[in-house]
Design a protein around this nucleic acid. Sequence first.
DNA 1: CTGTTAGCGCGTTCAT
DNA 2: ATGAACGCGCTAACAG
Lengths: 362, 362
Amino acid sequence: MAVTLADVAARAGVSSATVSRVLNGNYPVAGSTKDRVQRAVEELDYVVNGQARALAAATSDLVGVLVNDVADPFFGLIASALQAEIGAGGTQPGGSKLAVVCNTGGSPEAELTYLTLLERQRAAGVVLTGSTVESKAHAAAVATRLTRLAASGTRIVLCGRPPLEPASDALGLMTIAFDNRGGARRLTEHLLSLGHRRIGYVAGPAERSTTRHRLEGHRAALLAGGPGPDTGAGAAADRLTVHGGYDRSSGYDATLELLRRETGVTAIVAANDTVALGVCAALRDSGLSIPGDVSVAGFDDLPFSVDASPALTTVRIPLQEAGARAGRLVMGRQAPPPGGVATVATELMVRGSTAPPSPGRR
Amino acid sequence: MAVTLADVAARAGVSSATVSRVLNGNYPVAGSTKDRVQRAVEELDYVVNGQARALAAATSDLVGVLVNDVADPFFGLIASALQAEIGAGGTQPGGSKLAVVCNTGGSPEAELTYLTLLERQRAAGVVLTGSTVESKAHAAAVATRLTRLAASGTRIVLCGRPPLEPASDALGLMTIAFDNRGGARRLTEHLLSLGHRRIGYVAGPAERSTTRHRLEGHRAALLAGGPGPDTGAGAAADRLTVHGGYDRSSGYDATLELLRRETGVTAIVAANDTVALGVCAALRDSGLSIPGDVSVAGFDDLPFSVDASPALTTVRIPLQEAGARAGRLVMGRQAPPPGGVATVATELMVRGSTAPPSPGRR
DNA sequence: CTGTTAGCGCGTTCAT
DNA sequence: ATGAACGCGCTAACAG
């Protein structure tokens, strides 16, 4: 059996309460006894039982982090910055916590399951990252869970997803939203300014918030760009838009579909950088050059984007900063933004994959 | 305050013991009372307290997964497969567990800290993934922790790192090792067979096991390739080898260094695919074409490798299979391999980034 | 400064 | 089939 507080106490010739006090260092203890206790701890290789401590003190060392895909650097970057922030709080208020990274795979059911599991564990905090599935039923189910969690003192942070519809502030939720719409808009404006008029759009999964926001930004730019064959609405726009997943093969398949439709696109905007890689591969496999024949743009500015050839024009999201901030918020180390919602700016990164359309194709 | 078992019991007009039995379903309970209890649970929105349960039953729902870098898809792929395996055990023995993904950043201290934290939590299992720092002191410190953990019933799995030196089997540790040496050897043999004789090597961090194994495989191939200017040993070999991190910029910098040394390399092998991307970028920025002027090869076959241009020749490691297997082992759902060690085969993937050296440079 | 006492919420005997 | 009672290991009040 594992060694307990009582064992240490017996060995040191003190009461278990004293041992507890030495361990937690939040109470005056005589130097000599403190030494005896620490020696006993080392001699017995004592390690506190986190569960018993949590039960007695009604606190938890766990912070849940829900991500749609751990294998996607988008989430990896957020998670690693977040974990660095919450795990390194040696001296800071709240100490350091363990991040439980939960991979939902984008499944609403898995999301709910994990929220229940975290509730079971009485998690100190929960961070939901990335796009959410936009369905009334799911939103309600999530809201129910979050309300309960918040009521029991769990800090909730939304990172990279829009604030909860009704009264998220009232619940004490904090949101770090990404300016997907603005970034997408500036990206498409960039393409328009280069002279592109027929711009294909490879969107993410249809029912996701991030997908919608980016698509809205794209169409807003098109509409503002004045009348033309590709006005961003109606049948023409639909022909130029293909939905898929957030993975590379979706970009590949969607691009082949766009080419098949013979829309004469001179540029393709992808849901994110990973998808953009698939787009590039499909174009090359179809014998088209980038950006000579077709310009390509991504979103997120993941580390590999600068290494694609040509380097990818994309929209940078400060994922690590956002993750770190989410970490501080969930630890209560930073004051929540006014209104509970902070919107993180995105930045257009123009690189080699976009250029003016070639005269012949224009 | 949160609703407890006692609250549910009171509401259902039964004892708390009965509620516990209904919840765990491991004891006969009359159908009618079972219904009453379940109704009370729903009406009160009762959620079990995992910590209290763990304390009373001396079990844990947590499985720790140590990774060197969550933002690296290498670990993401392992972690996601692992989590899918341990989290989806609805009906299987051991039920489902929560993966606690711990990001060590490759730091030995962080690794030890996390092991202690997991020991505190009385984790049901711990999986250590990726290369380890090869230092006597650190190995001993890890061994101490793992021994204690194993003694207290925690299942330990090593995935992608070599088995512990002394008697890892005796401790009940299980290891899934990757055949880094063999893969590296076949990769370099491939380059030799193409006609390359001066092969640069951009190695990973000097003190890591994976770095060493891959480098050994590389040199073994060179030595077996017969005498020549680049025999894989001595000063000539040292001039052709540069150490760096496992990130892109290391590959970039190391390549510039190799070019500066004017060794006349016709091929560069990188520590992994991420580093290889940096190598490619540096070559391109130096006005060299791939594979026309210099061939490039990576390792791991991460998803983006096939999208590089040219597509990266690399060595495939079945990371997801390995992660899933690690998950089954740590859950006790699969018998340990004979001797406690399984070595996963690696496969050479020849793609466009490698070709025979151009006659002029040979 | 230190020891004693009383739970935290649940699983699990032992009775009934 | 159900209930009462105890203890898991620890922290937090209350004494002293």
